[in-house]
Every structure is written in C-alpha cells, then in structure tokens.
Design a protein around this nucleic acid. Sequence first.
DNA 1: ATGATGCCTTGACTTGGATCAAATGAAAGC
DNA 2: GCTTTCATTTGATCCAAGTCAAGGCATCAT
Lengths: 246, 246
Amino acid sequence: MNETTFRLKDCGTCPIRFNAVCARCEPDEMAHLDRIKYYRNYEAGQPIVWSGDQMDFVASVVTGVAALTQTMEDGRTQMVGLLLPSDFLGHPGRHKVVYDVTAVSDLTLCCFRRKPFEDLLLSNPNVSQRLLEMTLNELDSAREWMLVLGRKTAREKIASLLSIIARRDASLHSGRTTDGARFELPLTREAMADYLGLTLETVSRQISALKRDGIIELQGTRQVHVPDFGALLAETGDDSDGGMPE
Amino acid sequence: MNETTFRLKDCGTCPIRFNAVCARCEPDEMAHLDRIKYYRNYEAGQPIVWSGDQMDFVASVVTGVAALTQTMEDGRTQMVGLLLPSDFLGHPGRHKVVYDVTAVSDLTLCCFRRKPFEDLLLSNPNVSQRLLEMTLNELDSAREWMLVLGRKTAREKIASLLSIIARRDASLHSGRTTDGARFELPLTREAMADYLGLTLETVSRQISALKRDGIIELQGTRQVHVPDFGALLAETGDDSDGGMPE
DNA sequence: ATGATGCCTTGACTTGGATCAAATGAAAGC
DNA sequence: GCTTTCATTTGATCCAAGTCAAGGCATCAT
C-alpha cells in the first residue's frame, strides 16, 4: 500500500500552495477552497479515468506523477501529457475526457467537484486568471513537445526528456541548477517510449549509448547522475538554453 | 497585392462573430471591443512575428491561415500550430513569443493591443471565460496532434491532416458534412511536411498513393475531392468517429 | 516564345528505428 | 535458496521514410 498517503488538511502548509491553480488566491478565497477540496490517493499504475468517461472532478497534482495517454484501436499508444506536482488535471466546461489518465507513481490529488469549481471560476477571477495562465503554459509545453516528436532523433528525444525531468526535479527540490544533477526517473522505459514516440528497445539502447558516452551515469536503472548538464543539453539539439518555458 | 483586404468596421457583420474570443460578449462589451480593435492584413508567406520577439498585440484570425513553427539550429522545422479563422493568436501575460508566426495564405487579423486586452480580461469575465475555453480546446487539439506525430504512419498522417482540413472547411462553409467533401488545400507540400513531421517528398508520395487508391481525387495540385469521407477516415487510423473535439 | 522561378512528382539508394527473439537482472513469494 | 515475474538490455534483421538527384509543369517577366 501507498506509504506517502497525504495527511494535509490545511492549505496553508500545502507544498504546491504557490504554484498550483490556487496560487493567486486571497486568504478568504483560500478558506473557501479549503472547505470544498478533498484528497484522493492512487498507487503507481492505477487508472484514474478512462478516455470517454465522465470526469466529475478537477484536481491539482500534490505529489507524484500522472500521465495522459491516447491509444489507437490497434494498441499504439502515445503519452500526451505528464502531470507533475502543481499541474492541473481537468477541463472545466467539458464533461468527458478524451484521454486515459493514469498514476505513473504513487499519487495524491487535491480534488474539487466539477460543478462547484466551475461556479467558482465564474465568481473568482483570481482562480480563472491563474487557470488561464497555467493552460497557456501547458499549451506552450505541448508545442515544444511537438517539435521533439516530429523532428528529433531518438538520442535527442532521450536527452530532451532527461533534461526536462532534471529541471522539474531541481525546481521542486529548489536545489542548485548548477552542473551535476542527480535525480530519479519517475518513468519505466516503456513509459518513456510512450512519451517519446519510440519503442522501449530504442529507449534502452539510447540510454546505454548516453551512458557509454559519459553523458549520464546510472545507479541501478532509475537513479541518474548527470556529471555535466551542459553536455546533456548539447545532446538535445536545442539551441544552447534548452527551451524550458520561462 | 492582396485582393481580399478586409473592409469590415462593424463587429456585427464579422464572419467569426460567434466563434472567436468575443463570442460570448454582450452588446455593450462588443461596443467596447469595437472601439479598441484594429485590422491587419498580411500576404501569403509574410512573417508576422519571429520567435523571441516582443509581441505587442493579440489577435483573432478573421480570414486566411497562419502557422506557428519552431526551428532548430540546424534548420529542422516543425509546425506546432495552424490558426484558422476564429482562432486566437497571442499569450496574454507573456510578452515574448516562442515560435515564429507566418501567414500561410493571405490573412486578416483582428488585433488588440496587449495591454488594453489584458485589462479587459481582468474586468470582463465573458472574454476571459471564452479565452480559457478556447485555450483548453487548443490544448486538446495539440494533444491529439502529438498522437499523430508520435505514432502514426506517413499515410495516416496525411489522411489525418486532410480530414481535419475538410472538417474545418465544412464547418466554416456550414455545408453538409455528408459524404463527398471538396476543398482547397491551404498549404504547400512543404508546409504539410512541416506540420506532419515528414519530408515534402514523402508527403507528395503519400498523396499520390491516396489518389492512386481512389481515396482522394485532385484537380491541379491543391483542389481536393473526397468521394467517400468514411474511406478517408478509415485511413487515419482513428477509431471510427475521427476525434474532432466536441 | 523563351528563360527563369517555384512548386510538385518520381526514381534510386540509404538508414534510423522498428520488430522479433533471447538473455540478464532484480525484487517477491514460497 | 529457488522459482516466478517483471523490467531491462542486447543482438540480428527488416522496412518505412529520409536523402539525393532528376524532371515535369505551371506562372511570370522579358
């Protein structure tokens, strides 16, 4: 069972307090949200909703990782979104989801029933403004990812994914983003393949190649050390800065 | 010079009145927008803004087609968005654009300077609600496109693009969406390749193949006739309904 | 008409990543 | 310890799409 079950009751100590959809809220607005929120926990691998289902709630990711995936009839699947802590799940104004949502790791969501949340959007510009901003950022990330999927080589794809995970991880642990990153991959090789539009064999081969070339070091299969972050960025094919939005 | 230069002054007769960001506005709100809007016209091929530029306005596409593209240092390019009439261009709250924007065909934009528009978002929930809704739809389309880029074959990609253009075209001309569609491709082979993550040679070959197989008929190089729309959809690889959002 | 210019098509050949098939390793239950 | 299970690695082969290279076919200016 999941050991990381989330115990918070109070938004004031919430780890995503300043990054989530509620980031702009005034104390009285927080109090309102506090009253209508509830938590849900999922174990790694558990489905959250299936494509075509009604989704009766929206949520913020508090801890863990969730994936949005689309599947074709013949079984080909493509991950179309990776939700990390503070990311928002749901589509106010749309009742059906058009992709499967799955917990990739153990996961805690801070949920709101859809109707009350939609009412709140209408009455509370701080929430709707923030949600618009987050959605525009998501859209930019999705477009960034289209470049990765459409034009990058397998090696560049892997390097891009590693650098994104490293960066998101660093920004969470508020560590120094200097050279020398160390992080845990929250994804299996297969999930990485689904994200990158590759097969898991190709993912494995390219990771081995990056290891052989000294770009990364592995402890076990998930623990990654990047001795020279610039060297990793050079492998992504991006122009120098690497292209993390903002 | 561009013959289709747009002459409207009055929002009341605007062709995108009921689909654009202003769709939900009340008469007095329309009057306000009417006062601060202005039109810009571009010829096919003209750049609108370059990646990294400041963009001092936001806009709705009134007529024509605009493309968002990202380019890697070595010249590989990927189209990351295709803006058709009523689509919104711009990122309120972000000053720099992160992709090139180009007029693909002759184009008319209905523009608002950024600052007044941002003020309006704060004071006018009908606009910001509508913009949120449109942005969420864009995000869903982007995710749909990630499946196309990551997992579909060249033939499926072409069929997907043709069916999307056919559908958007049909919904504009409010024609019957029955079998038998006829439309004009607004894109060169190269632009299609950039959209689909292919080379222009592959695009050409696949279009020839679809023609050979009787799925499409061509008059010249741009005028497309689809005798059996179901047959085209079957080539997209999608499950029967084709996946147009809502 | 005659080039010149810009799309577009077609052909011949190459290749990066997919596919098919084992083998290895690591954790979990008995 | 031993077996099962699941994730990962590695190898051998194949093929869809890329690359390189002509040629065709409009449109436009001279």
